[in-house]
Simulated assay, not measured.
Amino acid sequence: MSTSKNKSVNEDNKTKEETSIDIVKSSGDKVRFSMDKLRSSLRHSGATDDVVKQIVNTVRDELYQGISTKEIYNRAFSLLQSKKPVFASKYKLKKAIYELGPTGFPFEKFVSSILEYSGYKTEVGKILPGICVTHEIDVFAKKNGTVSVIECKFHSEEGRNCNVKVPLYIYSRYQDVKQQWDKKKNETLKMDCGGVVTNTRFTADAITYGKCVGLNLLSWDYPQGNGLKDRIDRLGLYPITVSQLLTEREKQFLLSRDVVLCRQLFKDKFFLDHLGISETRKKKILKEIEQLCSS
């Protein structure tokens, strides 16, 4: 048999192996491993085609039945880190958002910042009266003569999705606030929509209900092509928790002072002086942040 035929047979065998590997998700569910999903997530990190190919080949050779998604992630992350740290920083985006916890407030600030870069004027934790009771709104957003009330559902643990109870509850709050808002005689701004943002995913029923009542839903991967991950990548609005150079203590210090985005830190460099960071390390951190923001 010729070398080219041998190569073809080997590739066919690898393809068969790929399709027969079951992996365990953080929720405990077993799913069939998808090499295309791995390639896609690596490309999203900004890695070149050659780097993606090298990592995919390495990970594929190390797969075994029942391997966890966490193990696959850790291995791919380590390989990216060895190639180019900025790739690894972008690749860990989902994990970095989990690290905004545990209170959920930094996530609200994060969502607020994303909306501001999309032209909204926002307030976090605004108190609004309803027909029945008073409500604290996670993010109150104004744009083009209209206002939106947005609730943020943050999960600090992987595998926890938002079921239909979440939009049901949020929609009832929105209706209570909207009815009172519409009674204001001198109010020129129109309250046109409510929304829910989560760092995880919505169940199928939650999405169906949201569409039915006109509630805007935003999750890690919904709407398709314009989910949280897509918006962050497109706008370069990475949370400071993606940094590979800042320590956990330093990240928490910055979050406590409402510095949530890498862009904010790059603009307000003096916070690094408050941390007592040396000039040499400061330059490295700012270079990392600049690469993330510009990418």
Rank of each mutant, 00 (worst) to 15 (best):
S4P: 02
S4I: 13
K5F: 10
K7A: 12
N10H: 10
D12P: 00
K16T: 09
E17G: 10
E18H: 12
T19W: 07
M35P: 02
L38H: 05
S41A: 07
L42P: 01
R43K: 13
H44C: 06
H44W: 03
S45G: 11
A47M: 03
D49W: 04
I55E: 06
D61Q: 09
Y64I: 08
S68A: 10
E71G: 08
E71C: 08
F77M: 05
L80V: 02
P85N: 03
V86Q: 09
V86A: 06
K92V: 01
P102D: 07
T103A: 06
F107S: 02
E108L: 09
S112T: 07
S112H: 05
G119C: 15
Y120F: 15
Y120L: 01
K121P: 00
T122I: 02
L128S: 01
G130C: 03
G130L: 02
C132Q: 14
H135T: 00
V139L: 04
F140S: 03
K142L: 13
V149E: 09
V149Q: 08
V149K: 06
I150Q: 09
E151C: 00
H155C: 05
H155N: 13
E158V: 03
N161T: 12
N161Y: 13
N163E: 05
Y171C: 05
Y171D: 11
Y171E: 11
S172L: 03
Q175R: 10
V177K: 00
Q179M: 11
D182V: 03
M191G: 03
C193W: 10
V196Q: 00
V197C: 10
V197D: 10
T198Y: 09
T198C: 05
T200L: 00
R201N: 11
R201C: 05
F202C: 01
D205N: 06
L215Q: 09
L217T: 04
S219P: 06
S219E: 11
N226S: 13
L228N: 03
I232Y: 03
D233N: 04
Y238M: 11
V242P: 10
E248M: 07
E250N: 04
K251W: 03
Q252R: 14
L255Q: 07
S256V: 00
S256I: 01
D258E: 14
Q264R: 02
K267Y: 09
D268S: 10
S278L: 08
E279N: 12
R281W: 14
K284S: 15
L286F: 08
K287Q: 12
E288W: 12
E288Y: 13
I289E: 07
C293I: 15
S294M: 08
